[in-house]
Write a protein that binds this DNA or RNA. Structure first.
Lengths: 247, 247
DNA sequence: ACCGGTAGACTGGTCTGACCAGTAAACCAG
DNA sequence: CTGGTTTACTGGTCAGACCAGTCTACCGGT
């Protein structure tokens, strides 16, 4: 005989669930407005503080935004990776997530994204990638920040070429967290110009593979480049975790 | 000249920041207790509703937990992947993703997880997988729900064998959302016993490959099985999105 | 006809004070 | 020493109030 721990369901929690459900089911779409707090408290038959705590939770999840004075009520936001980014960042900060795991995950995502992008890309995607690469070339002489920005745009363009929002978002998030973990180390790198030129040639090779629809090559190049550029920051004992992905 | 949008900082937000800071900096450790709400409201010099909204935000981020009646106050929790899980789940559900995208992503994740698991698994992992497989065998005769439960356990064991929490969590989330999308179709499948036997043999093959440390084979088997079992539910025109992953 | 200012009716943000059900620890009777 | 009971708290919820801010619709001046 198995029992479960009993925990009362808080009123604010039930309010959250109902609103969440309405968003998930599509009954409420991004851009729509929720009724005002005073109206919600009538509809849910709870006090205003309960409504407000529910809205706070939804706001923390980046699902709504409310502004005082706006007579249209709280705005329902489009799904955004911000909350995901925050929680992943917190985990990394608490040492529950090391660079090796993040890098491993990024190699998985980027590798697959390159593979898929090479086979599914359209001419528009290629043009977008060309533009991003051009921006990177220009960025070399305009400082590391600018270059890094263009680099991110290139990777996002590849993810978009797969047509899969999950790959776009997870890639974006994990890339961001990795950068936050090692940005100080990159800041103090000796030869940043050589570094940038390195990355540039690598991206050119990748783009060529994608243009040739050679997914296998693009994927291998991407994973290898990640390893080559970041493995030095991974504790030695954990580098073997990354090797199986390079085979 | 660049200006930034001006937004007033809410009182509850400043409370959140201070508590967050104390946790991140280590001044407050997991297991510690926060002062009671009534105590916090004098320390921060704000009303109780403000304190409560701040605590709600922290609770939504899985950083604290509070229980009515506990005179020791709200408990500070250790960082846990639960928040990551929730935000990823929300994202996956709110984005109104199609089965093709979810399945594509799952093939990516499962494929890599199998590859890594095969090379990194220990004897403990193998024992765990053996147990899960045994539970699946028993489940065949005990109904679909039971079988499905054991199946999930098997996949989670593989993900855990990679040692990467990100693979575990994203796998869990995507698998869950996929199931939500097609569970009704599975419920009404004609020959569920044959279906279960099919899956069982497939899992046996996978486990063998993992035991042999043959990551390539395990990965290929996993992706192929996903395609074989789920592609029929994917709209025809979108199946080509999945094919590049089978190469 | 247009425009700028203004009045009013809202909004969310915050505070106060109250009540309840629940917990835990100290107390007390057996 | 044990088992109930008291007591002083806790968080959860509600009601009501005030404020600063924002829209909107109206209105008077040009």
């Amino acid at each position: 005989m198995e029992f479960e721990p009993v925990a009362p369901v808080r009123a604010y929690q039930r309010v959250v669930e109902q609103i969440e459900e309405a968003v998930f089911s599509g009954r409420i779409k991004p851009g729509d407005r929720l009724p005002s707090e005073r109206e919600l408290m009538v509809q849910f038959d709870v006090g205003r503080s309960t409504v407000r705590e529910a809205l706070r939770v939804l706001q923390a999840a980046e699902m709504i935004r409310s502004r005082p004075g706006d007579p249209r009520g709280p705005e329902v936001l489009a799904a955004s990776p911000a909350a995901l980014h925050r929680s992943m960042h917190r985990l990394a900060r608490a040492d529950h997530l090391g660079l090796s795991e993040l890098l491993q995950f990024r190699m998985v995502l980027d590798g697959s994204a390159h593979l898929l992008a090479a086979q599914l890309r359209t001419e528009e995607h290629l043009a977008e990638l060309d533009a991003a690469l051009e921006a990177m070339r220009a960025g070399v002489s305009r400082g590391f920040a600018e270059f890094s920005h263009a680099d991110v745009a290139f990777h996002e363009a590849i993810a978009r070429a797969t047509g899969n929002p999950l790959l776009v978002i997870s890639g974006e998030v994990v890339r961001g967290v990795v950068l936050e973990l090692i940005e100080d180390k990159l800041e103090h790198a000796d030869d940043r110009t050589a570094l940038m030129r390195n990355w540039l040639t690598h991206h050119e090779e990748v783009l060529e593979a994608i243009r040739d629809s050679d997914g296998e090559r693009a994927s291998r190049l991407a994973k290898q480049a990640l390893y080559d550029n970041y493995a030095e920051y991974v504790p030695e004992g954990q580098r073997r975790l990354l090797l199986p992905l390079l085979a």
